[in-house]
Amino acid sequence: MNISHIRNATIIVQYAGKKFLVDPMLADKGAYPPFPAGINEEMRNPLNDLPTSIDHIINDVDAVILTHLHLDHYDDVAKEVLPKNIKVFVQNEGDAKQVKSDGFQQVEILEENTLFDGIQLIKTQGEHGRGEELLKNMGQVSGVVFKHETEKTLYVAGDTVYYEGVKIELDTHRPDVIIVNAGDNQWHDFGSLVMGKEDVFEVHKKAPDAKIIAVHMEAVNHWTLSREELKRFGEEKGFSSSLLVPGDGESYNF
């Protein structure tokens, strides 16, 4: 398994001989207005350039996985440059309808046991924040677990905070590698939309033998947790050896 962090939640997963592109946000720096989240609204998104060319990112991709359809996970450039005949996995019928209307021809809804060329893809639950009103506004989100007899188990948690559903996924699948969206992005007075440092620590305590990769950081205007702060926190709490905080363009082999 090789995991390449591109930017924000965009990652490339090389797994059991297949290349997966997850949550592609491929626009140039500053292409989009800021999210109206009450934080850094003078900054246009994305905040950084891609670390490599779009051609390099999408070349030889076997399948795309969209955990949900927010702009920072599935943007206009991705819709334009990805081949319309590429396999796209989505979380539900509503997302499938939208992606099909964008011209993609091979759209499949992830289930509890979806198979793609021998790789098991399992849709996982998530909550995009805390509180009924915020969750209603943010909509349904998902993650995905990758399993194959020749690979370690990978859990991509997606845009979720740490809550009972994540505990269940960790207990059920016992992943060796966990990717968390950990920028502690905030929305007005509603609080966190994704994991902050305490959430990441809870993931570690629940899965102490797993490697945790923290992404979705310093990439869109409403982030509040920096890479350096999370690294320091990992050292303070004694789990830095289990925590990886990649810069854009970094990759890991497992």
Rank of each mutant, 00 (worst) to 15 (best):
P175M: 04
G131R: 04
A207R: 03
L121T: 06
F35D: 06
K87C: 15
H188E: 15
V64T: 01
Q125D: 15
L121A: 06
E41L: 00
Y74C: 04
A210Y: 01
I6T: 05
D189Q: 12
V13A: 14
K197P: 05
S4I: 11
G191H: 04
I168K: 11
E250R: 03
G129C: 10
S192H: 12
E218F: 07
M217G: 01
Y252N: 01
G249T: 02
D171G: 13
E111R: 15
G131N: 10
N8Q: 10
K97G: 11
R44Y: 08
N45G: 08
Y74L: 02
V141I: 00
L225A: 00
V144Y: 00
L21Q: 05
V200A: 01
N85W: 03
P34M: 12
E236I: 06
G249M: 02
G249Q: 08
S242M: 10
D102N: 07
V22T: 14
K136Y: 10
G165P: 02
V177I: 12
G249I: 01
V166Q: 13
Q120H: 15
E198V: 14
D199M: 08
L243M: 03
T224A: 12
G143S: 11
F201S: 11
K147W: 02
N40H: 10
Y74V: 03
K167E: 04
K206D: 09
L21N: 02
E127C: 13
D72R: 15
T160C: 00
E250W: 02
H73M: 09
F146A: 12
D209H: 14
L21M: 03
P33M: 13
I54C: 01
G249N: 05
I54M: 06
N113M: 14
S53M: 07
N181I: 01
M217Q: 00
F116Y: 10
S192D: 11
G103C: 07
D76N: 04
N8H: 13
V203T: 09
H73A: 07
I39M: 09
L26I: 00
E112S: 14
E108L: 09
K205I: 09
A96Y: 05
G165D: 07
E80D: 09
G103M: 03
G139P: 04
P33N: 11
T224R: 15
V220D: 09
E112C: 05
V194G: 01
H148F: 11
N45I: 10
I3S: 09
